[in-house]
Design a binder for these strands. Structure first.
Length: 933
DNA sequence: CCTGTCACG
DNA sequence: GACGTACGTGACAGGG
């Protein structure tokens, strides 16, 4: 092949970016034989594999290289000693992996370049310039904004994570100027990530504005006197030297003295022996297999370490997933042989197929089983013909299916056998469906929860996610089986052969995930979390959800009508005030009325360019104008009607006459439950009008609703974990905690406390739990930011332990990429070392998670113990609302229930954690939920 | 399908 | 006028 030139296409991969992304995106992984951390290497290899394997079309690389940073001292440090001085230390687990990524690149037979004293970005710039000058095309695989100055004239960037090409327009979108002006913008705006100073008070927006007016940075600086805004003018004149220095820092070096040529980067096929050898050495089983497949080679055998130190059996090598190999069970004899096999092994994976996602309405269609990876079967029970044009036969069952009752009678002893473990993905669903057929499945393991206990905060725990992540396999999408949208069919209309592939695959995948993930619980030190806080919750929630709560349709529908009338009246008024008719429910139209037509101040546009009209903005306007005030009233009614009085009626189950929510155990990263379909954890309570919705949640004749809720549980936990003696004492003395805080902060004696001072202290107390910021508190209290900051400063002065706790938590998160609750629940914080605005989010979330999570653990413990504690009472636990449990109790037994349930809840931390503060539970009862509060 | 809005703890 | 900020959720309506 001739040298690099026209028609050549050079791909330059930003190696460091790949490494960091791989490191932070993946759970920590160590080489089995010796514990060497290799997660980032694996991720790096997989990213390389995916990048070279993707369909580049006409842009396929003729030349390719991975460029790395080398050393930490570059010529930029000589220019400015603070350059990149704010970077955190490299995580300990990552350091030994860096040289391995170089070796990985070489193993892929991709050129691998680095140069002492220069950043990867400079080498990339130099190569890109040369390639462009030679008439070739360049793709820079990175999303680093520092590289955007290189875009244009045949050079584009590619963000491999977002799968997005960044061209000239992409750069303009980001910087407001073309690529040739990017350095000028950066010189002015500076960069907090690299610690480039720029001009104080000038950001990207302002910089772009100025440059678009003056053309170039030099022109701008020379003519700075002409700038109208005094502040900007002064900044530019005063900081000229600093701006010019910043430009030299961000300007990439196109003449890096590299010792190789473009031709050295020619794309080459990997040598299978070298590549597979390296992967085998790293013990990447799945990756070896996939790459061997792609190369048409035999995958290397990687010996399993014999007897790992913790005694766990290592995961067996599994055969490839093959939907053609699955069996359809059509008779008792075959079913019995599968049952026998499961009994022999002592476990099986199981999955039910139904006609709906709502377990309380879903009809059972079939059951799939898997006894060992690859050996899975589907037992169809209620499949019907796909087309319904056959007038008589359309609802008849398909031939070749076992009778449902007979099949379930055979399965029941197995599914209830305490000696056989039943493994599922989201087992609560299957347990509920089976319970409606008289089968109480137990004992169970749940791959969703096993993943959640280990990986909360890292990724979702749905089967598709887990399969792709841990098995490198994309399951058959349900859309391909039942379609979507209007043409969607129910699973009973899926032909049995097709259903077998889909359903049996699910069971197969579940079993594979279990063999991989279950042994890891131990290594991740979350076995107890899984065994005490996740797994036992499945049967408890199942019972609560199946029990449901009685909701009075007439009450709701009467309220709905009343809301309609009030809304119609308000709507007329609003149209009158606006002088025209418009859709009050459309923020876009409302914004145009308020800010364009009426010319009110404060209109801000969102991402889509439409006005945003959130409540706090309308509240400010409402002091002067009637229209926004009416809109606020209208919105409240609209919300209540659509979300509650109307939608709730649709959720009343026709068979039970009750509303059955579904709790997701692995939905919230902190350990909280989430309630869906309907969400019964956000029924209104804060306003009088909304609270009346709770009157529709009733106890049937002869029964009473009893509510027990933890008083200030999160603040109590904060007092304990941060070790704040004053707070602990206030709680021990049963004081009003917000008043006590106010007293301590503002030196006001308790007997002189005013509601307003108490309110401010309360806001600060909550703010602390959320990872307080002056801005947030100011907005919440509607006070100037400086005043809010003053409050916070005073708070930390009085409670220095709180600040220490917050700092320690963030430090822990940065070191370990996770935080933990008092009960050992792990919440990963992969963004904690992120740069830019995401850092603030991650920091606050990390501060909040141990507190919110510990509270969640405590109520989970109470819920797990509750059924046996109240077994002798005529009472049922119905709902959980984060710090509240709601029960339905026979009249006359309420006091007993309160006594027992309170004891369970107040003692829920025992005996694992001895809290320095008492847990206090308040109780109430009544004919409906409003009255029980 | 995404965004804005708002309900809860 | 650098940026964007309290934490965690889910449902509904509007609009492309």
């Amino acid at each position: 092949m001739s040298g690099f030139g026209k028609g050549s296409h050079l791909h330059l991969i930003d190696g460091s970016a790949f490494i960091f992304r791989a490191f932070h995106a993946l759970p920590p992984l160590t080489r089995k034989s010796d514990g060497l951390p290799v997660g980032a290497v694996q991720g790096f290899c997989d990213m390389l594999r995916r990048y070279i394997g993707r369909d580049h079309g006409r842009d396929a690389p003729t030349h390719i290289a991975v460029i790395f940073d080398k050393g930490s001292h570059t010529f930029r440090n000589d220019l400015y000693d603070q350059y990149k001085a704010n970077r955190d230390e490299m995580p300990e687990d990552l350091r030994p992996q860096i040289p391995l990524t170089r070796r990985a690149t070489e193993a892929f037979n991709i050129a691998c370049q680095e140069m002492e004293g220069y950043e990867a970005d400079d080498i990339i710039a130099t190569l890109a310039c040369r390639a462009r000058d030679a008439g070739g095309q360049v793709t820079i695989v990175s999303s680093d904004k520092d590289l955007m100055q290189l875009v244009g004239d045949g050079v584009v960037m590619f963000d491999a994570m977002k799968n997005r090409v960044i061209d000239r327009e992409g750069v303009e979108e980001k910087f407001g100027v073309g690529p040739e002006r990017v350095v000028d913008v950066q010189a002015l705006a500076g960069d907090s990530v690299d610690n480039v100073p720029g001009a104080p008070g000038i950001g990207v927006k302002t910089a772009a504005l100025l440059l678009n007016e003056y053309g170039t940075l030099e022109e701008l600086l020379d003519r700075a006197e002409e700038i109208k805004q005094p502040k900007r003018r002064q900044t530019l004149i005063e900081h000229r030297a600093q701006i010019e220095l910043s430009k030299r820092l961000v300007q990439l070096h196109c003449e890096t003295p590299i010792k190789f040529t473009l031709d050295d980067l020619e794309a080459r096929h990997p040598d299978p022996d070298t590549l597979l050898g390296f992967l085998a050495e790293m013990e990447f089983r799945t990756l070896s297999r996939r790459i061997a497949e792609a190369l048409g080679e035999e995958a290397p055998t990687i010996p399993e370490p014999t007897a790992p130190s913790d005694g766990e059996r290592a995961a067996p090598e599994m055969p490839a997933i093959d939907p053609e190999a699955y069996v359809t069970i059509r008779d008792a004899e075959t079913l019995e042989s599968w049952i026998a096999e499961a009994r022999e092994r002592g476990y099986l994976a199981i999955d039910t197929e139904t006609t709906s996602l709502d377990e309380m309405r879903a009809d059972l269609v079939g059951v799939s089983l898997c006894v060992t990876p690859g050996a899975a079967a589907y037992l169809p029970l209620a499949h019907r013909p796909a087309s319904s044009d056959d007038l008589f036969g359309s609802d008849a069952l398909e031939e070749g299916q076992m009778d449902m009752e007979a099949a379930l009678a055979l399965l029941k002893p197995l599914l209830e056998d305490p000696a056989v473990l039943k493994i599922g993905q989201n087992m609560k669903y299957d347990a509920k469906v089976l319970a409606r057929h008289g089968i109480e499945i137990a004992p169970i393991d749940d791959t969703m929860l096993i993943s959640y206990a280990q990986h909360a905060g890292l990724h979702g725990h749905g089967m598709d996610t887990l399969s792709e992540r841990y098995l490198a396999h994309q399951p058959i999408p349900i859309k391909e089986v039942i379609g979507s949208g209007k043409s969607q069919i129910t699973f009973d209309r899926v032909p049995i052969a097709e259903a077998t592939k889909y359903a049996a695959e699910d069971a197969d995948i579940t079993l594979r995930l279990w063999t991989l993930l279950k042994p890891e619980l131990h290594r991740a030190r979350v076995t107890r979390v899984y065994e005490t806080l996740e797994r036992p919750l499945v049967p408890v929630l199942k019972e609560m959800e199946m029990q449901g709560i009685c909701v009075d349709r007439d009450t709701l529908s009467r309220m709905s009508n009343a809301f309609s009338q009030k809304m119609a009246a308000l709507e007329d008024e609003i149209h009158e005030l606006a002088g025209e008719k418009f859709n009050v429910g459309s923020p876009k139209q409302l914004g145009e009325i308020l800010f364009d037509k009426m010319g009110l101040e404060g209109g801000k546009k969102g991402k889509t360019g439409a006005y945003a009209t959130p409540a706090d903005v309308l509240e400010d306007l409402a002091t002067e104008h009637d229209l926004p005030a009416r809109v606020l009233d209208w919105r409240q009614l609209s919300k209540l009607k659509s979300t509650y009085t109307d939608a709730l009626q649709e959720h009343i189950n026709p068979e039970t006459g009750r509303v059955h929510t579904s709790y997701s155990i692995a939905g919230a990263n902190t350990g909280r439950l989430a309630s869906t379909d309907p969400n019964l954890q956000n029924i209104p309570v804060r306003t009088e009008e909304g609270r009346r919705i709770r009157e529709a949640f009733v106890a049937p004749e002869g029964k009473v609703l009893v509510s027990l809720d933890y008083s200030q549980i999160e603040l109590r936990i904060l007092a304990h974990v941060a070790g704040i003696e004053a707070l602990k004492e206030a709680f021990r003395d049963g004081q009003d905690i917000h008043a006590a805080t106010a007293s301590e902060m503002f030196n006001v004696p308790m007997d002189e406390m005013t509601p307003d001072i108490r309110r401010q202290a309360k806001a600060i107390n909550f703010g602390v739990i959320y990872g307080i910021s002056g801005f947030g508190l100011a907005r919440n209290l509607r006070i100037p930011r400086a005043e809010a900051q003053g409050f916070i400063d005073r708070y930390f002065e009085r409670f220095p332990g709180i600040r220490a706790y917050m700092d320690d938590t963030v430090e822990f998160a940065k070191k370990h990429d996770r935080v933990e609750t008092l009960f050992g629940r792990v919440i990963h914080t992969p963004e904690i070392s992120a740069k830019g605005p995401r850092a603030g989010f991650a920091r606050r979330a990390a501060i909040n998670a141990p507190i919110q999570g510990t509270a969640a653990d405590i109520i989970r413990r109470a819920m797990v113990r509750m059924p046996s504690a109240i077994a002798g009472l005529p009472a049922k636990m119905l709902l959980q609302v984060h710090d509240e449990l709601l029960f339905e109790v026979e009249e006359g037994a309420t006091e007993d229930l309160i006594a027992v349930a309170r004891e369970v809840m107040e003692g829920a931390a025992d005996p694992v954690i001895r809290l320095d503060v008492p847990l206090v539970v308040d109780a109430g009862q009544g004919a409906n939920w409003a009255a029980a509060h």
